[in-house]
């Protein structure tokens, strides 16, 4: 089963990097948000992999927390997007530079 552990770690790294680059690459804020979810998933994969390989329930518990936080984040973030879209008629990240002010 060692191959599965190594494979999972490498897969998680790959997905994590893909998500990271997606954040920098995409312009649609929702797409960026989905890339964040990809990164979270990669992290989850590592947590669960180690939890299973070590027989540790803690990893699974952390996984549950990550999922909860992701859910909360998605709820608030998407509500924000709706708000921003109504104000600016766009949610493209490069057109929003309100953080400058």
């Amino acid at each position: 089963m060692t191959y599965m552990i190594h494979g999972n770690l490498i897969l998680a790294m790959a997905i994590f990097t893909i998500g990271m680059l997606g954040i920098l690459w995409k312009r649609n804020a929702i797409a960026i948000f989905m890339c964040v979810e990809l990164m979270l998933n990669a992290a989850n994969l590592v947590f669960v992999t180690f939890a299973q390989s070590l027989g540790q329930a803690r990893g699974v518990a952390v996984f549950l927390f990550v999922i909860t936080v992701a859910a909360a984040e998605a709820a608030v973030g998407l509500a924000l997007f709706i708000k921003v879209f109504n104000d600016k008629q766009t949610i493209e990240a490069d057109r929003l530079d309100m953080l400058q002010h």
Partner: peptide, 14 residues
Amino acid sequence: LQNGQVQSYALGFL
């Protein structure tokens, strides 16, 4: 550096 672009900030983060 302070252009208000979230993604530029994310790059700094990276």
